[in-house]
Design a protein around this nucleic acid. Structure first.
Length: 892
RNA sequence: GCACGGGUAGCUCAGUGGUAGAGCGGCUGUUUUACACGCAGUUGGUCAGGGGUUCAAAUCCCUUCCCGUGUACCA
């Protein structure tokens, strides 16, 4: 036992324990262990990433689960790692290149060299987030850190690709995809965010070929693609245009006759009922074009500029500039009927934040495997989603599932393991569809290993979507030994924003490639927002830096504070005040232990003599055990933390400790002193263990300071088994416990009454007043003394026949009537007013209670115990009223 | 449009049918030897509005309004 500074300073302590845990191998998972397995795989953060609040929330929860599982005697694997994050990482290095003088692009550098540069960048800067997670205290098995481009992992990705290809689920096809004109790659549907935007709807005159004085009105938001129009479509049922079908109109830009066709897709009621068909630049138009055998004219370059030499005014211009310019031209030609403001949804690239272009392009696609298994597993509860409502979102996505565009025009990532026969390269490049049959025919080669005769083959240039490697994460990170013990994993903790990107795909991959579900429970965290409810983002600058928060409040403070406000709903509004509360709580805990350390050892002789307050706090501790267990079982972390906070701050510190302080003063009865010290030690031992998963560092430090480690062979707290709550009240009957509970509650209630009374008489809290108790509840003699201590009184005299001087302030408490004799300060009027006020409140309660009990249907229909409860309540109020009335009459 | 989540004290949120709660903030007092990152007291609510079920509704049902999220889209 040693002296500690007055305020808790987390920085050094946290670092010390993080080192020590690693040194002792506390986080390491042993696949040969006999203990039951518990496992989580971390949602791998981007290797380029830096820790943000979402990570903190997410990983704190995982850490709590992992640490608690260790305490429960399980063999725990929490497997960490990072994701290569194709686009994000490549963009990062490209940005560096662009900063050089002269600026360079990846094309200047060349593929091989560029990929080398990214690897170098990764080695140098890629570990930041791992260090940050360690600073948060995450108890991952760092020896098993994985990267989605580790050699073994890459082999698994290629194997999976090959298998799916051979099965016919992967094919290459010419299809309309979401094209990112900045990043110059295709994207999956999930990477496109539909964003409402203010644009304009232009109505344009398309002259009839046969009679240039007549025209057809066509509404469009994209006049810059008019040169690519190949038809104008109307609904076949639209009588207005029936006579025009088969005739031609003149395209207003690059004037050429194009046919008027009929297609069901056109809505009669919308716009003018005539739709320009631009198959190269619109998904739906493309389908209309296919249905009607129309040609495709592409007038956009991959980077979103106009490519149309026949229209020199627009050729080479950026697509948005061209939009304005094209309208000017049309207006000059007298062909603009009108323009009006229009709200529509524009698909925006999640990655580069620019509107995507629908673009016809040769890409690789996957027909998802095991869709039915994936759907059934969640539906039937083999995999449990929490909160449960996410299951609906998941099911909805699966029902409408579309083939996944898995190729990306990137260099950083897993290169597509497909090779084309050199002498057929051109022919294959043009092939509208390639699949398993082409491999059988020897035109292409697909495999985890390059072909045996590489000189005859050319590998596909594209890389795979990052998620095509992440979806294998739960098993591709494990060797067979590890899989045997830890797969399927127990819990997955992640954000609902990646339910489609990642969670659902992992489920399918798990069933398809590991033969089993990847995890049993998925806990979806809330999304951390700022106080205005906005998403945390770099551009808004509303995202606090967790490292800064750790510096100021400690990792434990941050974790605890965040858990206090982490609800189970959709989002959590981040308020730094809450983190400050976490720190304050750490300080409270620290000081409570400091107080214990100032007391010296508890003795075994004389035998401890326990009072109601001792039994009561142990009883509450037992309840806390249950509350934490229940909360964790339901993944209600905020409930756990609230219970832990309230027990310690309110029950233990404010009530119990304050009630027993005199037991520790010099000259106190040694038997009572022993009881108090034993109780304090028991509470602290249990409490630190219960709190440890939430605040691992400070609890560990205090565990050591208190010398508890010595009794556990110097083991760190984090691997000390959870003590059983059953030992807490051993040797006591239920009756004794509940009696203690009643007495302690009465004591604390009485203390409150006295404090109220003192405050009302403007007696400062430390004013040593004298109290007289006319007891109604029989108690041991220590109780009045504890009451004196709690309420800041010099002494409480127990005096059954006390006759109070007129005007003595008094209060009715569960212990009995309490009087506050104020020598020379008696103010009869004041006391009368006070009692009247209290009586008013009570009268109201009585009236309400009586009304309720007077209601026959209540008495008849409500359950007996509810009625009984109400009757008890009324009796209590009435008793109190009687006392107050007696006091009142004594005043007159 | 459809689906889901939410609306409770000034703020952040608990509260799944039986006396409306916590923390913060505000105000008042207090430096009492664990803690001023503290202690004590106090203030503050038509539980978004309306209707219904029930002996009893913040809680269950219907409906309207507002906020958020996802998803589908017609130029």
């Amino acid at each position: 036992m040693r002296e500690l500074p007055k305020a808790y300073e987390p920085a050094e302590v946290e670092e010390k324990w993080q080192r020590r845990w690693l040194k002792d191998g506390c986080f390491h998972a042993d696949p040969h262990s006999e203990k039951p397995a518990y496992s989580i795989v971390i949602p791998p953060p981007n290797v380029t990433g830096v820790l943000h609040m979402g990570h903190v929330l997410n990983n704190t929860i995982q850490d709590i689960l992992a640490r608690r599982a260790r305490q429960e005697g399980k063999e725990v694997l929490w497997l960490p790692g990072t994701d290569h994050a194709g686009i994000a990482t490549q963009a990062r290095v490209e940005k560096e290149l662009a900063k050089e003088t002269p600026p360079r692009t990846r094309f200047d550098v060349g593929r091989e060299e560029f990929v080398n540069m990214v690897w170098q960048w990764k080695e140098k800067h890629g570990g930041i987030i791992i260090k940050q997670l360690k600073k948060l205290g995450c108890s991952c098995d760092w020896e098993r850190e994985r990267f989605t481009m580790d050699p073994g992992y890459a082999a698994e990705v290629a194997r999976v690709f090959t298998e799916l290809f051979n099965e016919g689920l992967i094919y290459r096809g010419l299809r309309m995809v979401n094209w990112d004109p900045v990043l110059l790659t295709a994207l999956s549907d999930e990477e496109v965010i539909m964003t409402p935007s203010k644009s304009k709807l232009y109505t344009i005159r398309y002259r009839l070929e046969e009679d240039s004085s007549r025209y057809l009105l066509v509404a469009t938001t994209r006049p810059e693609t008019i040169m690519a129009d190949v038809a104008v479509a109307v609904n076949p049922k639209d009588s207005r245009y029936a006579d025009l079908l088969g005739k031609k109109v003149i395209r207003p830009l690059v004037e050429t006759p194009i046919p008027i066709i009929a297609d069901e897709h056109v809505e009669i009621g919308f716009g003018t009922g005539a739709l320009k068909i631009t198959p190269a630049h619109d998904r739906v138009d493309f389908e209309v074009g296919v249905r009607n055998g129309l040609q495709i004219i592409d007038v956009l370059t991959p980077d979103g500029h106009i490519n149309c030499p026949d229209c020199p005014e627009l050729h080479g211009m950026d697509r948005f500039e061209a939009r304005d310019r094209s309208i000017e031209i049309i207006r000059e030609k007298g062909l603009l009927e009108k323009e009006e403001p229009y709200d529509n949804n524009v698909g925006v690239s999640q990655r580069s934040d620019v509107p995507i272009e629908p673009r016809l392009s040769m890409q690789w696609f996957l027909k998802y495997p095991c869709v039915n298994e994936a759907m059934k597993s969640v539906e039937e509860g083999e995999i449990v989603f929490r909160p449960a409502h996410w299951a609906k979102t998941y099911a909805h996505w699966l029902e409408g599932i579309q083939d996944w565009c898995i190729s990306r025009q990137l260099w950083w990532g897993h290169r597509i393991p497909v090779w084309y026969r050199k002498n057929m390269a051109t022919e294959l490049k043009e092939a509208v569809k390639l699949d398993a049959q082409d491999a059988e025919a020897g035109r292409i080669y697909v495999g985890a290993e390059p072909p045996a005769d590489p000189e005859n083959w050319v590998q596909d240039e594209d890389a795979l979507d990052t998620w095509f490697s992440s979806w294998l994460w739960p098993f591709a990170t494990m060797d067979s030994e590890c899989r045997t013990k830890f797969y399927p994993t127990t819990d997955l903790v992640t954000g609902p924003d990646i339910i489609f990107f990642w969670v659902s795909r992992m489920i399918m991959a798990g069933y398809r490639f590991a033969g089993q579900k990847p995890f049993s429970n998925v806990f979806f965290t809330s999304i951390v927002r700022d106080l205005q409810g906005r998403k945390m983002s770099k551009s808004l600058g509303n995202s606090p830096d967790p490292l800064d928060l750790i510096d100021r409040y400690g990792s434990d403070g941050l974790r605890f504070g965040l858990m206090r406000i982490a609800p189970t709903g959709t989002d959590v509004k981040f308020d730094e005040k809450q983190i400050e509360e976490g720190k304050n709580f750490a300080n409270k805990l620290y000081n409570a232990v400091r107080f214990r350390l100032m007391q010296g050892e508890a003795g075994t002789t004389p035998a401890p003599r326990f009072s109601a307050v001792h039994i009561d706090i142990l009883d509450k501790l037992k309840q806390l055990h249950a509350d934490v267990a229940t909360g964790l079982g339901k993944y209600e972390f905020n409930a756990c933390v609230q219970a832990l906070y309230a027990f310690f701050w309110n029950e233990y510190c404010s009530l119990f400790l304050e009630a027993v302080k005199n037991d520790l003063r010099e000259g106190a009865d040694p038997a009572v002193r022993n009881a108090t010290l034993h109780t304090i030690d028991t509470v602290l031992r249990h409490y630190l263990t219960l709190l440890s998963p939430f605040m691992p560092h400070i609890t560990e430090e205090l565990w050591q300071s208190l010398g508890f480690a010595a009794r556990h062979e110097e083991k760190p707290l984090m691997i000390t088994p959870l003590p059983s709550p059953d030992s807490l009240l051993q040797g006591l009957s239920d009756e004794e416990v509940s009696k203690a509970r009643v007495i302690a509650a009465a004591l604390y209630e009485a203390a409150n009454r006295v404090r109220n009374l003192k405050a009302e008489y403007n007696l400062s809290t430390n004013k040593n007043v004298r109290l007289v108790l006319k007891p109604t509840l029989p108690t041991a003699t220590d109780i009045p003394n504890r009451l004196a201590l709690l309420s800041g009184a010099k002494a409480v005299e127990t005096c059954p026949g006390y006759e109070a001087p007129k005007g003595t302030p008094a209060s009715v408490t569960p212990l009995g009537e309490l009087f506050l004799p104020l020598e020379g300060l008696v103010d009869v009027d004041a006391e009368r007013t006070r009692i009247a006020k209290e009586l008013e409140k009570i009268t109201k309660e009585i009236a309400r209670s009586e009304a309720k009990l007077g209601n026959e249907s209540f008495v008849q229909r409500a359950p007996a115990d509810v009625v009984q409860q109400e009757q008890d309540r009324l009796r209590d109020w009435k008793e109190k009223e009687a006392h107050l009335l007696a006091m009142q009459s004594a005043l007159s």
